[in-house]
Design a protein around this nucleic acid. Structure first.
Lengths: 233, 233
DNA sequence: CGAGCACACATGGTCGGACCACTTCCGTCG
DNA sequence: CGACGGAAGTGGTCCGACCATGTGTGCTCG
């Protein structure tokens, strides 16, 4: 009996660890349904309240998914599920850390774009082209932002590394982008942005990884430099 | 009255969003203490149970910190706090995604090492050297692992990008490392690893960013390739 | 008068139960 | 045979009580 009580921190914390361990050790497969909250609580010897807190914690981490009236399920455990919380980091970042996040994005985005240049399929490349055209065809900031996000998302997906794509997605969360770009694009950066996007697209069409890497790095680097100056000043 | 009820999903979810918003909008500064659970629940018009779940969720995300008997506080909101959850991703990753994580690490680690070559201070460089020596002076896998982690951590810190360092930390969580390296080092990879670490250190001493980048990429790439072969086969 | 200690209080942690909201499934009725 | 409706199951919310721990206060003793 004493083995069920590792006496580690709070009861809820123990619940989190136990469930995480079950998944890590293969006892719970992706998509599988868990016992009910009541049963789980009984199994691990804790109250339903504490178990609910544990479940809620794993839910926000993208590990579990609770469906009202149906049950609790393990998510697919794909990169996109687990890295959703990355958006929180981006949303809560200010000043210096925002610049650091953009530096990370520059490194990853340039690599992803280079990989995409070598691997992208004609279909996806066409979609990237459509996004570019749509972006240049409107003046509505909201619409531009949406196409911009899709443009980079397609490229990241084409790189063939879902984990990297998911991280980049978090680093370009809609709210973050809206926050940073509001100021950036006010300084008539539209023309420059269009030129940079065109350069990226051109490199992809030419299947030139080095050019793609450089174009992507320059693109993110522009925003990075602007933000750096704005933060320091 | 209706403005306090955005009618968004569950009550708990609303609580999470509200607190997050307070922090994002500057109403709650890092390190600041929040009202008590009971007061917060009353303010946002929900039960203490639901509020507790919201607080627990933000606690695991590294946004809040609950101190028993004292109160609830906003964390320092540093990169290390918010990116702690990255370790969960690493711990729950298997097969293909593990390779992808290592690919991300290779990209970031090589960049961080290159930056470190240009920026590292003599003190920190000396510490890196000590870790290298300690790593080569023992045969205890546990001790080697500890020094190995510290070796890379020092370098990442020297790169001057705390966010990048925190991500790399998550990508090299102790449990992940133990899992992957157990198999890797069984294949007498000790000698190769030592050579690679020495090469990285040499590049840092020479203040040669390009050599540092190449050495770090090769180092991580070795493990990556081994894991890729092992996963595919 | 000052230092140290013990107690009371505030606060987060846990528990149990009750009820609500939604989903699912099965039996019934047309 | 199909559609409808209800019953059971399950997560969501709320309440109230009590426990465990940290904090501050006021008392006591030197």
């Amino acid at each position: 009996m004493e083995e069920t009580a590792p006496r580690k921190g709070t009861v809820t914390q123990r619940g989190i660890e136990r469930i995480k361990a079950m998944i890590a050790e293969g006892g719970l497969a992706p998509g599988q349904r868990l016992p009910t909250e009541r049963d789980l609580a009984a199994q691990l010897g804790m109250s339903r309240s504490s178990m609910r807190e544990a479940i809620r914690a794993l839910t926000v981490l993208g590990v579990l998914e609770a469906r009202h009236g149906s049950g609790i399920y393990v998510t697919r455990l794909e990169a996109a599920d687990l890295l959703e919380t990355f958006g929180v980091v981006a949303d809560l970042s200010r000043g210096r850390r925002l610049v650091e996040l953009l530096e990370v994005r520059r490194v990853l985005e340039s690599t992803a774009t280079a990989l995409a240049a070598a691997r992208i399929t004609p279909d996806r490349l066409a979609e990237v082209g459509r996004r570019l055209a749509a972006m240049n065809a409107t003046d509505d900031p909201e619409e531009i932002l949406a196409h911009d996000l899709a443009f980079h998302r397609e490229i990241a997906a084409a790189a063939g590394n879902e984990t990297m794509a998911a991280i980049l997605d978090g680093l370009s969360s809609r709210t973050l982008r809206a926050r940073v770009w509001r100021g950036y694009q006010e300084e008539d950066a539209f023309a420059r942005t269009r030129r940079e996007h065109a350069a990226i697209h051109r490199a992809l069409v030419a299947r030139d990884p080095e050019a793609a890497r450089a174009a992507a790095a320059a693109h993110v680097g522009e925003v990075e430099e602007w933000l750096r100056a704005r933060t320091a000043g």
